[in-house]
Amino acid sequence: MLDVIDLNIEFHDHITPETVVYDFDLHLDEGEIVGIVGESGSGKSMSALAIAGLLSRKKMKKRGQILFDGVDLLTCSRDTLRKYQGNDICMVFQEPMTSLNPVKRIGWQVGESLRLHTELSEDEIRNKVIKMLEDVELQDPESIYDKYPHELSGGMRQRVMIAAALICNPKVLIADEPTTALDVTVQAQIIKLLKKINKKTGTAILFISHDLSVVRKLCSRVLVMYKGRVVETGEVNEVFDFPKEEYTKRLIAAIPRMEKLEYE
């Protein structure tokens, strides 16, 4: 369904061009959950933004192909891209505080994609939104519909973001560090929710994170990125239990464990 072939991304707003992603390959089938792990500067977010079509066409040079159902998203027209964005390919970001528009009510924001991509009436949109808010396990969706983002907690806002992303029944949900800014107990709930949704609707998930333990719980396959390249990839349990690359081993060793730190 989604094939990224040989993606290279270069920054062009400084005097010397800077390559941030090298030779990135990815294959995503329907209903799969794939994780991309890496630390800051690894290029994982850039790759995700490229797939979502959110990178500027002028300041960044991209080589390679991003094939979605056969259409190359890097070279197609803006109109074609817009058809896919928010409809078949949706994204959830890290900061629930800034990804929601603070002056618009929740109901309006979640329904926005429907307004843009379908011909439904306002009433039909409202019903769908409320159903979606229920599906993301928000209590009392009717009253949340009329609330503003600042009236909700971080976890609730993230659920709203997920609702907004899923309302058009996308084929791919790209989640960029969706749990990083949340408390530990809420993180666990959001992961469970994503798993549930994937099973129920068959939406493929591309899950980006620096947190390996979370990726292990959720994903079936994983790509490990370091300084712009994919250094290792494979089934999640294999990569964790039998890492081949140095960096992967380091990353796994650095996972916080419930054990005392040794002072040499």
Partner: peptide, 11 residues
């Protein structure tokens, strides 16, 4: 901080 750096700072 990144995971690989956290260790160093804690130490």
């Amino acid at each position: 901080l990144d995971v690989t750096v956290q260790d160093q700072i804690l130490k």
